[in-house]
Design a protein around this nucleic acid. Sequence first.
DNA 1: CGGTCTCTTGACGGAGTTCAAAGCTAGTGG
DNA 2: CCACTAGCTTTGAACTCCGTCAAGAGACCG
Lengths: 191, 191
Amino acid sequence: MNEQLTKHISKFVAVGDDELVEINRFFKVVNVKKKANLLVAGDTCNQTFFVSKGLLRKFFISDKGVENTTEFALENWWITDVLSFTNRHSSEFYIQAVENAEVLSLSRENYQRLLHQHPAMEKYFRCIFEKAYGAAQMRIKYQYDFSREELYHHFRLRHPEFLQRVPQYLIASYLGFTPEYLSEIRRKSLS
Amino acid sequence: MNEQLTKHISKFVAVGDDELVEINRFFKVVNVKKKANLLVAGDTCNQTFFVSKGLLRKFFISDKGVENTTEFALENWWITDVLSFTNRHSSEFYIQAVENAEVLSLSRENYQRLLHQHPAMEKYFRCIFEKAYGAAQMRIKYQYDFSREELYHHFRLRHPEFLQRVPQYLIASYLGFTPEYLSEIRRKSLS
DNA sequence: CGGTCTCTTGACGGAGTTCAAAGCTAGTGG
DNA sequence: CCACTAGCTTTGAACTCCGTCAAGAGACCG
């Protein structure tokens, strides 16, 4: 039984200890080494992942061959390609460990069984997606509102933990610009 | 009882006619005139809206005083500022009718009562947010992948209905560039 | 130590913005 | 039903942010 996950569930719904034990059975613990992939573009995403330890990222490769990191996920975050997961079509994304990580994997079949057998989990995931949707809305807003330089400073202030744990070129890839330009911004902010 | 909404709910969950009648009682029909606001920046968003007829948009005003349209919603779409709605803090967004519209308004209190009294609606909204989150993920992906010009052509092909119903400057505002540049792109594609 | 990743620097070019002004369209009131 | 006006769209010139390319300097790992 994973403490990280049960704590997280309990933040959103009231579930007894017995039921929490039951719920845990649906998940499988997976250890991922740095740079190893949990999902590869072209495959269908058959799992959704809860990060209990470490740091993952989601990215795709553009026509020009550039990696674009659309998302980071650290402890207590969920990460998956939702569209591929729910619609069973092949994914354009990779999900990869930035650091060695431990995740709890929930397969599509178990996801559906879990929701069916434990109605409290409908509420839990409703809350999770509600939050995730809200966060995505803000992400989208920032894209309109900020210049690339402002995006960096905003990110730096709101997520200092990532600057410690993630190499610069991945930060650049996440913010949607080149490592060269990130380097230039950093130089400017020093002086 | 609103047919539009009941049909939509039935697409996601199996609910009997009697319960559908009950569910409908939680909603209030609101008619909005073109350019009228359902939400104004600074206010807390106390409702979520289901569009049964017409077309709405969500936008915010940047520091420089420019309107940025982050979302359109037409028939059968939900629209709200989720973060303001769930966390009860003031919103930075406006929600405005692009055309005369009819919406079903669900207040925060009724939303919670509805979820509590009709567990099927937990599932319904879980599905709605799952889809909305998936769509937002794709929106974010496009921002990395496409140039502004490509964004326009992609939008034009996938949402031709909007080009009919929405003035150009709002399309530009949605795609995140200036009306002048949109005009230039259109000229290029004609020749 | 040696080699491969990562970060920095600088020159140049191009996509997209800003500003200003003119043409067009559609709604409104008389 | 027409005329007027405010708002929408187009054009063009100057400018800027940021990407591309190329090359060098560190840093980390075997």
